[in-house]
């Protein structure tokens, strides 16, 4: 079959899937159809997956289904952002901010809560955190004013930090944000560091881009 034919075939296949689901929705009782509709709104869930999940939930026990419903409700009711570091918290300063064992001298700045969790998973940073709640991205309408940068400056001014580690992603957005924040922090006379850039563990030199290789050479260490 030629290129046109194979592509045409895919399009027809997709349309058929879609029509199938629309027809099936009509066949379902209203509450079930509503559940499918709600599940479909979740990221990465298409009409077919939504249907499968809804039917699965229908088959689970009453308790299991209620546990899921309660968990969703509880998260929405109780989780807010920490007034100190802007990580997620169940009311008041988060666990990381109220932990007396942690080092008050080092502050690690991350883009969002998921990055914080990745840092915590590694377990090497024992200081405090600051979540910017985003990265500077003009195309997304995200400027420095949309981020928790004033709060960061206030924390550094008032706190006892001796070092601020900028641990935003090594992407265009993350690098630009780190550069911007570094420029604001430097006049405060504090040590500002950026997480190292280089080859990932298990990586392949052949596939690394020029900048990554240059950065890994700059950050080389004696053995």
């Amino acid at each position: 079959m030629g290129a046109w034919g194979s592509q045409g075939c895919c399009r027809v296949g997709f349309a058929r899937d879609f029509l199938e689901v629309v027809a099936a929705m009509r066949a379902y009782p209203k509450p079930l159809a509503r559940l499918i509709e709600e599940l479909e709104k979740l990221p990465g869930i298409g009409p077919k997956s939504a249907q499968r999940l809804a039917l699965h939930l229908l088959r689970t026990t009453e308790e299991e289904a209620s546990a899921l419903a309660d968990a969703i409700r509880e998260v929405k009711e109780s989780i807010g952002t920490c007034p100190v570091c802007f990580n997620y918290t169940a009311g008041g300063p988060c666990e990381l901010c109220s932990d007396l064992q942690r080092d008050d001298g080092v502050l690690c700045v991350v883009g969002d809560a998921r990055d914080l969790m990745a840092m915590e998973r590694a377990g090497s940073h024992r200081g405090r955190y600051h979540v910017l709640q985003g990265l500077i991205s003009p195309m997304e309408g995200m400027g420095p004013d949309s981020l928790r940068i004033p709060e960061l400056l206030a924390r550094v001014r008032e706190g006892e930090f001796t070092e601020v580690i900028l641990a935003t992603n090594p992407t265009v957005e993350g690098d630009a944000t780190a550069m911007y924040v570094a420029r604001l922090l430097k006049p405060l006379g504090i040590k500002v560091t950026r997480i190292a850039l280089g080859l990932p563990v298990g990586g392949d030199l052949d596939y690394a881009d020029d900048v990554t290789i240059s950065r890994s050479l700059e950050g080389r260490r004696e053995m």
Binding site: I136, M139, V172, D175, A176, M179, D209, D210, V211
Partner: peptide, 23 residues
């Protein structure tokens, strides 16, 4: 990669202008 235009991300003004051009 051929060229990453790395300096664009080191300066907020250049970054904003590059974003505008792309958009």
């Amino acid at each position: 990669p051929v060229h990453l235009f790395y300096h664009v991300r080191e300066d907020l003004q250049r970054y904003a202008h590059a974003s505008y051009a792309a958009e």
